[in-house]
């Protein structure tokens, strides 16, 4: 799709979310959470493009969320707090990134996992500061100076999430088609050639890593504003796993996939929990398994295949059926 068409599609999707949230009030919260996670998943997609999977990105989610919770009493405005929280996530991402850049594949994933688990333990251990598993409650924030009612505030969170999602999505697309983004794909296939070309692969990956940490930070900040309660569970390895889960569910090749995946994930979880409170994990797991086995391109891949079929007629269906990144 061309840039303009993609932008239009993104805007249309955002409008659809707003319409849904207006028609079904309880979905407003679910959609806010889905948008937040979608932004974080964009970061996972960046790393996936380089063939790297982080099982610890929940840490950056939690860093921003806890920053928001700690600083909200002093900086009570969302517009001021957001850059601080995301900045801290990115800064930690830079420091950690300098260290984990030396590693690839499973070691990369495991080191991220280990560091996030250490961070998770700290959140639990420093009980007098973090209140452990009880978590910290966020006071209501102001939005660009305006104090909002409870109802208006939930709208403000959703709308800011959507705006941030559009900006982040556009930025990631631009990044992908930039030389730095192209080099990222090179790490996955032939890292040494990058070296020959004079592009240091570590720097390429480091840039992506810092951006992904910042994106996770944005997601974490929105989550904190939406739930208004931050707990160490945000940093647990299953939350990191969830982000990777969503990336694959949505389709790892596309910005839209991240948000489609997040929406599908959250809605499946909510409905599974409503129908079978006892076995919602089993349902989510089965959905994931089916997607991987039968539609490895994820939801976005399925959509593309359907679109492709319609555009090119039945003859093209077989080749378009390859799907996937």
């Amino acid at each position: 799709m061309s840039g303009a068409r993609t932008l239009a599609a993104g805007l249309a999707a955002a409008l659809l979310v707003v319409a849904l949230a207006w028609a079904v009030p309880w979905l407003r919260f679910v959609l806010t959470v889905a948008t937040a996670k979608g932004i974080a998943v964009l970061g996972i997609l960046l790393l996936l493009r380089a063939g790297q999977v982080s099982f610890g990105h929940a840490m950056y989610l939690a860093i921003a969320a806890y920053t928001a919770a700690f600083l909200a009493p002093r900086i009570p405005d969302a517009a001021l707090l957001l850059p601080v929280a995301v900045g801290l996530s990115a800064a930690v991402g830079l420091v950690v990134g300098l260290f984990v850049m030396r590693y690839r594949d499973i070691f990369f994933g495991m080191l991220n996992l280990a560091l996030s688990m250490v961070f998770y333990s700290l959140l639990e251990k420093l009980y007098s500061i973090t209140h452990g598993t009880d978590g910290i409650r966020l006071p209501p924030l102001t939005f660009a100076g305006a104090t909002l009612s409870v109802e208006a505030q939930s709208w403000a969170v959703l709308l800011s999430a959507l705006v941030l999602a559009l900006v982040a999505g556009a930025a990631v697309r631009v990044y992908w088609s930039s030389p730095l983004g192209e080099a990222l794909a090179g790490i996955k296939t032939r890292e040494q050639r990058l070296d020959f070309l004079g592009v240091p692969p570590r720097l390429v990956l480091l840039a992506a890593y810092v951006i992904s940490a910042a994106l996770a930070g944005i997601g974490g900040f929105i989550l904190a504003m939406a739930t208004r309660q931050v707990t160490p569970a945000l940093a647990y390895w299953t939350t990191s796993g969830e982000l990777v889960f969503i990336a694959v569910l949505g389709g790892a090749g596309s910005v839209f996939g991240a948000f489609l995946g997040a929406a599908a994930y959250e809605l499946t979880r909510v409905y599974a929990a409503a129908f079978v409170a006892d076995a919602w994990q089993m349902i989510l797991g089965s959905v994931l398994l089916l997607v991987i086995l039968f539609a490895p391109g994820g939801i976005w891949g399925i959509g593309q295949r359907l679109l492709g079929r319609r555009a090119a007629g039945p003859g093209a269906a077989a080749t378009a059926g390859e799907g996937g990144p």
Binding site: W26, G135, A226, T227, Q229, A233, R269, V270, A277
Partner: peptide, 22 residues
Amino acid sequence: IFVDEGPGVDHFVGEYRRLVQS
């Protein structure tokens, strides 16, 4: 109508809203 607290606070907050609003 039972809901599971197991998945954690962010999920539970959504469940609470669903119970009330839906």
